[in-house]
Computed example of a mutant assay.
Amino acid sequence: MKVVLIGGGGFIGAKLVKRLKDLGHEAVAASRTSGVDAMTGAGLAAAFKDAQVVIDVTNAPSFEPVAVMNFFQTSTRNLLSAEAEAGVRHHIVLSVVGADRMTEVAYMRAKIAQERLVIAGPIPYTIVRATQFFEFLGVIADGGTEGDTTRLAPVQMQPIAADDVVTVLAGIAAGAPSNSLVDLAGPDRTHLVEVVRRLLNAKRDARQVIADPQAFYFGGKLDDQSLVPVGPHLMGMTHFEDWLGSHTG
C-alpha cells in the first residue's frame, strides 16, 4: 500500500515513515524539501499518484493567529482537492485532544478549522486527536517560564509518547476510514505541574515549578478537562516513568 506522509520530514512524520516501511508499506515522505508544498499545491499531484492513504502530520511554521489559521485552512483545502483528483481513499490527520475546549488558543482554533474542512471534504477520513507528547513537555515548561520560575495551571493531563502515536497512526493507515474523531492518550492520568516538575528534576534543571491558576497555556486558560480525553479513547502503552528513564540520566 502506498501511503504519503505530508510533513514526512518532521518529528512525527519521520518516525511514521520508518514504521510504515518496517510494516512493508510504500511510505513516501512529502515536504517542501522533497518538492511538495501543501500551501501552494506544488508537487501534490505527482506525490499522490497511486496513493491509497494520505496522512497529514504537518505543523504550522508560525503560531501567529492569522498565519496559523491560513496555514491549516489553505494546506488542507489543497490536500483534499489533490487527493480527490488522485483517487486517494483515506485521509488521516493528526490533531489535538481538547482542541475544541481551548478556543482561546489560536493554534487550537486553527486545528478545529482544519478538522471541519476534513469532515466536510470529499475524502473518507480519520481524525486522530492526541494528547501532548512527552517530548513536548519541555516546550510547555519553557512557555510558562520567567527567570528561574515556571508557572503552570494546576490541571490534569494524560500525555503520550510520540512512538505510541506513531504506532496508532500506522495501524489506522492499514485499516478502513472511520469517518470520525478518535481520541488518543497515554496510559497515566496525572497533573501538568507534577509531570513537568518530574521532567525538570530528572534533567537536573533548577527551575522552580509553581501551580498558578492564572497561568496561560500558549495564550489561553486551562481547566481540568482541557488536556485530557473526556470520553472513550485509545491508549498508548508507554508509561511516563519508563519514558523518562530512557530519555534522561
Score class of each variant (00 low, 15 high):
A82G: 11
F11V: 06
T40I: 08
W243R: 05
L137Y: 13
F136A: 10
V128D: 00
R109M: 09
L152F: 07
R116P: 00
A215Y: 04
I119G: 02
A29F: 03
T248I: 13
D188C: 01
V97G: 03
G24C: 14
V66L: 09
A162R: 02
G35P: 03
R198G: 04
L5K: 03
A174K: 07
A45S: 15
P177N: 07
T167N: 13
F216S: 10
L227V: 10
P232S: 13
E85Q: 15
K111H: 09
F63Y: 14
D100P: 05
A47E: 00
I6M: 14
G121A: 11
D212R: 11
A185G: 01
V195E: 03
H233S: 11
T40C: 06
R198H: 06
V166Y: 06
I6P: 00
M235I: 12
A174S: 15
D163T: 15
G87T: 09
M1F: 00
G220T: 09
I55P: 10
F133G: 01
V228F: 04
A30G: 06
A110C: 12
P124S: 13
P177T: 12
E83R: 07
E26C: 04
G138W: 12
G231L: 00
A82P: 11
A29M: 06
E26W: 00
T131G: 00
P177F: 05
P122F: 07
T103G: 02
I123F: 10
